[in-house]
């Protein structure tokens, strides 16, 4: 059984936000609008968090870190959900079942990476964007929590494709939209249980680290970076 994982090379990442846009389009994430954004209620499954790492001449040395859901092996969000709306699947993907979610937001509080977001209102798209919604992903109603899914609808699609071609799933068959869109090729996606996969190789690099490793959540998003890191701005 696969264990899906993402590697983000921060030394390659330029902070262009192509992943953010690709994610928004792929997963029917509604634009917040000015009033909601001012209230801090934007939804973004993939966000860029600014970190400061000392000074660069007279200016602060800023680094933007892409933060999707970590799909932890021991996800704290699952333990607090009173209705089992969020569960970890056989392949290590942490799923959110929207019709089950009662919107209590315990999970948004429990998540140390703050990647879970609440739908404060009914999603709306400016015309004619509504026609461009993906039929593979549901449109979340008001009052439920949502988060990055590692584009697991793409996994289903990939499985359908390989079963039609009568072959096993290979590396590159299933890749989330953010990884696919990265122009700097800073993101790699694959199976962490496959000893020959790129993610396994990169996860053993001396540059590899995970966010808030000390919490024991065992995140499956692995970052690569040479330098020392300052705090989040």
């Amino acid at each position: 059984m696969a264990r899906w994982s993402m590697v983000i090379d921060l030394d390659r990442c330029t902070g262009c936000q192509a992943c953010v846009v690709a994610c928004q389009v792929e997963n029917n994430v509604p634009p917040a609008g000015a009033d909601q954004a001012a209230a801090g209620r934007t939804i973004s499954w993939m966000r860029l968090a600014p970190f400061q790492n000392g000074e660069h001449g007279t200016r602060p040395d800023l680094k933007l870190v892409p933060i999707p859901c970590m799909h932890c092996d021991h996800p704290p969000c699952i333990k607090v959900c009173p209705v089992k709306a969020t569960q970890i699947g056989e392949e290590g993907l942490v799923a959110q079942v929207y019709p089950r979610c009662i919107g209590c937001r315990y999970c948004t509080t429990a998540c140390p990476y703050t990647v879970r977001q609440f739908n404060w209102r009914r999603p709306e798209w400016p015309q004619p964007m509504e026609r461009g919604l993906s039929p593979d992903v549901s449109v979340r109603p008001r009052g439920v929590v949502e988060k990055c899914s590692f584009c697991h609808h793409r996994l289903q699609r990939a499985k359908d494709k390989v079963s039609a071609e009568n072959r096993p799933l290979r590396e590159g068959d299933y890749v989330p939209a953010c990884v696919e869109s990265c122009p700097a090729e800073a993101m790699v996606f694959g199976d962490l249980d496959d000893p020959r996969s790129n993610v396994t190789r990169l996860s053993q690099s001396p540059r590899a680290f995970r966010l808030l490793e000390e919490l024991g959540t065992e995140p499956k998003v692995i970052y690569l970076s040479k330098g020392e890191w300052g705090g989040e701005v």
């Binding site: 569960q87 699947g89 056989e90 392949e91 993907l93 799923a95 079942v97 929207y98 019709p99 593979d136 992903v137 549901s138 899914s149 697991h152 609808h153 996994l155 289903q156």
Partner: peptide, 10 residues
């Protein structure tokens, strides 16, 4: 066969 939530719920 799989009863993983993500198989049917997205």
């Amino acid at each position: 066969v799989s009863t993983d939530c993500t198989t049917c719920h997205r």
